[in-house]
Simulated assay, not measured.
Amino acid sequence: MASPNLTEIVTTTLRNRSGKLADNVTKNNALLAKLAAKGNAKPAAGGRTLVQELEYAENSTFQYYSGYQLLDVSPSDVFTAAEFDWKQGAVAVTISGLEGRIQNAGKEQIIELLGARIKNAERTMKNNIALGCYADGTGTGGKEMGGLQLLVPKDPTTGTVGGVNRATWTFWRNQQVQDATMTSATIQPKMQQLYLSCSRGRDQPDLGIADNNAYMAYWQSLNPIQRITNTETANAGWKNLEFVGMPIVFDGGIGGGCPANTMYFLNTDYIFYRPHSATNMVPMDDVRSINQDATVQMILWAGNMTLSNAMLQGILWKA
């Protein structure tokens, strides 16, 4: 078995960093950063599923009336709920007895080696959760997160999301606009169309996310005029342009997760990041001994993304 002292070093080092890792995961993704800023990164303590309450209809008893006319007092069914499965992720930090006891003798040297491996594990966890924000939930046999490709798909008329069938319930369908060429000449009218489709009075999209091609098309369309950036988003480190006061954030380039030829218009009041409150980038409670002279510690995450209003979300994509 590995040295108890080595096990203690691995465990305490990871525990000291777990809170920082959870915080950095949200900062690593523009959508998660926006949700955190709005209070929509909401940890959940448990339950069979993640339940998201939905207000899907207006009260049907409203009426104009006169004098002694009878009023409609019948109950209205206006609420339902969507249920999202828990998804789990893990990354392992390992150190062998040879590395920990012999090659890196001394506590400081062990921590230095661990530090490099933990940073790599953190980077791995951050990148995969960030990519999961765009996933359709079918990867790894359906074990991955359900991100924007599930919540705001190109075809919103099919599929079941959160237990609600979109073929049956029109209120659970997002908006979608196709752009056959996605060039600087075509993209702004399509963006305007999508923005209006996703707006309901003062309820309007507040975050746009684009891949390389969509961002470039919009950027080039602004060449004749001064480009405007959203100061709040820019100060957070995100490259962005502005569209009717809404930041359009670039999430392409190396390791970018936004699907090709795609731009999302999101109303983040109704999108949630729901990590488990006790399993949010934390090391396992115990270090498990295996049939090797090594110490293995797992960093665990559980949670998912949820949605409470689909019709105010939109996607612009190249057909």
Rank of each mutant, 00 (worst) to 15 (best):
V296A: 04
A33G: 07
T268K: 13
I209T: 04
I95Y: 00
A121R: 00
D72H: 13
W238L: 08
D293A: 05
M281I: 12
G159P: 14
T170P: 07
A234R: 10
Y195V: 04
I228C: 11
M246Q: 15
T233G: 03
A214I: 08
G39R: 03
S74T: 05
N291V: 12
Y64H: 11
A37P: 01
M246E: 11
A90E: 02
P156K: 12
D77I: 01
G137I: 12
L21V: 03
M311V: 13
N230A: 03
T279R: 02
A45W: 07
G67S: 15
L196R: 14
M284K: 08
L148I: 10
A234N: 11
Y56V: 14
I102L: 04
L194C: 00
P283H: 03
F171N: 10
A217W: 05
T268L: 11
D206C: 14
E58G: 15
S277V: 04
L50W: 00
G257A: 13
M311C: 14
S197V: 09
A217H: 06
N223Y: 12
K126Q: 05
R17K: 04
I315M: 02
Q69V: 12
N127M: 01
Y195S: 03
G100M: 00
F272L: 13
A121I: 00
W169R: 06
L98N: 09
T168V: 15
D85H: 11
T157V: 13
D211N: 15
A294W: 06
V93E: 11
A121C: 01
A22M: 10
I290C: 08
G46E: 07
L312H: 07
G137P: 09
F272Y: 15
L316V: 12
T124F: 00
S221H: 14
L31T: 04
A319P: 15
E55N: 13
F250I: 10
E99A: 11
V177F: 12
Q109F: 05
K34R: 12
G100H: 02
E232M: 04
N261G: 02
W169I: 06
P4A: 09
L32H: 06
T233S: 07
L312V: 11
A81S: 02
Q175M: 10
I299V: 07
A302E: 14
V91T: 03
T158C: 12
N261A: 06
A105F: 01
I248Y: 06
G256K: 05
L113A: 07
K27I: 06
Q149V: 08
A116P: 05
T233I: 09
E83G: 07
I271S: 13
V152E: 01
L35R: 05
N120C: 10
A30C: 14
G46W: 05
G255V: 08
D23Y: 02
W172A: 14
P283W: 04
K27M: 09
Y215A: 07
K119G: 04
L113F: 08
D77P: 01
R17I: 02
E58M: 15
E232V: 07
Q88T: 00
E83Y: 08
Y195K: 05
W172Y: 12
G106D: 11
F243V: 13
A167K: 12
G255K: 08
P43Y: 13
W169T: 06
G314M: 07
